[in-house]
Design a binder for these strands. Structure first.
Lengths: 186, 186
DNA sequence: CAGTCGTTTTGGTAATTTCTGAATGGAGAG
DNA sequence: CTCTCCATTCAGAAATTACCAAAACGACTG
C-alpha cells in the first residue's frame, strides 16, 4: 500500500507544472487529448527519459492512460523508447529540437487531415464535372478550394523539408521575406 | 403544422453534401464544432446568402443551434449578415476568397492560442531566471521553445500580410522558394 | 516456475461538449 | 397597442470523449 514504486518520484517544479498544464490546454484546442499533450510536455522538459509509471505518478493519471498516451505520441514519432542500464522498464524521451517537433507534427497532421481533404475535394470536383447538374457557382467554390489547398500543400511540403539550420537563417530575415518573395513573384 | 417555412428548401446536391459533411469532420479534428464547420461549408458553396431557418432545415439541426454557430462564425469574421429586399430576416454569407478565409482564421487562431502560449512561456522563462532552483535543462528547453514560437510567430505575421495576389505569385515558385530563402539565409 | 513489465481490453463513471426546445425580447405592421 | 415574425438566450438533455481501475495476456528474466 504505502510503497508505491521503486523509482524516486519526479517532483515538478512550479514552472514545469505551469508549462505542462498550459500545454495540456493548448492540446485540447488543437484536437489533442489533454493527457497526451501533458505527457509530451513532461517528457520535453525532462532532463532524462522517464518510465511510464513515473509519468503516471507525476501527472496523477492512471498508468493505463499513460500507456495509451505514449502510444499515441510514438505514433506521431515525437517520442521514443530508450533503455536505461540496470532497469528493465521502457523509458521514454521526447524529441528535444523544437523545429523538429514542429516539422514532424505538421507533416503528420497534413498527411492525416489535409491530404484526405484534398482527395475528397478532387472527388467532388470530378463528380461535379462529369455530372454538371449542380450549381456552377458551387462548382467554382469547390475548385477554388481545391486549388488553394493543393498549392498550400505543395508549398508546405517544400518548406518543411528545410533543415533546422536553414530555418534559423530564414527567421533572421524577418521583415525581408515578404519583400523578397514579393519581388520574385511579381 | 404542415406548412413549414415560407422559403423554399435549399436542396443539397450530393456533391455539396459530401463537401459539407467532410468539412464538418475536419472541423472537429481542429477543435471546431462540427455544426459550425458545416454551416460555414454550406455558406461557402451557396451561391446566395441564406437565412438561418433555411440553414437549419438544410442541415437538419435546431434553429437555435444555427444561431449559435452563425454567431461563432461571425466572431471568426468569416461570415457576415446581409439583407435581402423584401425579406425581414437576416441572411448570411461567407467570405468566398479562400486565401482570405485562411488568412483570417490563421490570424485569429494565432491571436487566441499562440500569443497566450508565448506569454506563458515568457513568464516561465522569467520565473526560472529570477529563481533558478529548477533544472537548468528544463530551463533551456523552455527557452528554446519560446524562441522558436517567437520566431515563427514573427515570420507568420509577415507572411500573413501578403495580399492574395502575392500569394499566387509565391505559389508559382514551387520548387524554388526553399532555394531562394536558403541562399539568402546562409 | 515465479516475478516483472508492458500492453490491451473491459466495464463503468466522470467530465465536457453539443444540441435542443422552451422562453425571452425586440422590431415592424396594422 | 397587439400581433407576427425573427433572433437570441438559457437550462437541461443527449451525445461524445476522457479517464480510471482491474483483469488478462504475452514476453522476458532470473
Amino acid at each position: 500500500m504505502s510503497v508505491q514504486t521503486k523509482t524516486a518520484h519526479y517532483p515538478l517544479t512550479p514552472v514545469a507544472q505551469k508549462f505542462i498544464l498550459h500545454w495540456g490546454e493548448m492540446g485540447t484546442r488543437w484536437g489533442i487529448n489533454r493527457t497526451v499533450a501533458q505527457v509530451h510536455a513532461l517528457l520535453f522538459v525532462s532532463p532524462r527519459p522517464l518510465p511510464a509509471d513515473e509519468i503516471a505518478e507525476t501527472l496523477a493519471v492512471a498508468r493505463s492512460n499513460v500507456s495509451t498516451s505514449l502510444r499515441e505520441l510514438q505514433g506521431w514519432r515525437i517520442v521514443r523508447v530508450v533503455h536505461v542500464l540496470g532497469d528493465r522498464r521502457d523509458h521514454f524521451e521526447s524529441i528535444k529540437d523544437v523545429w523538429e517537433i514542429f516539422r514532424i507534427v505538421s507533416e503528420e497532421r497534413k498527411r492525416r487531415e489535409i491530404d484526405p481533404t484534398l482527395r475528397v475535394l478532387d472527388e467532388c470536383v470530378q463528380e461535379v464535372k462529369t455530372n454538371p447538374q449542380g450549381d456552377p457557382y458551387t462548382r467554382e467554390r469547390l475548385t477554388d478550394m481545391r486549388e488553394f489547398l493543393n498549392a498550400m500543400s505543395g508549398l508546405f511540403d517544400e518548406a518543411i523539408r528545410m533543415p533546422a539550420g536553414a530555418l534559423k537563417g530564414v527567421l533572421k530575415l524577418r521583415g525581408k521575406v515578404v519583400t523578397m518573395l514579393g519581388k520574385k513573384a511579381v
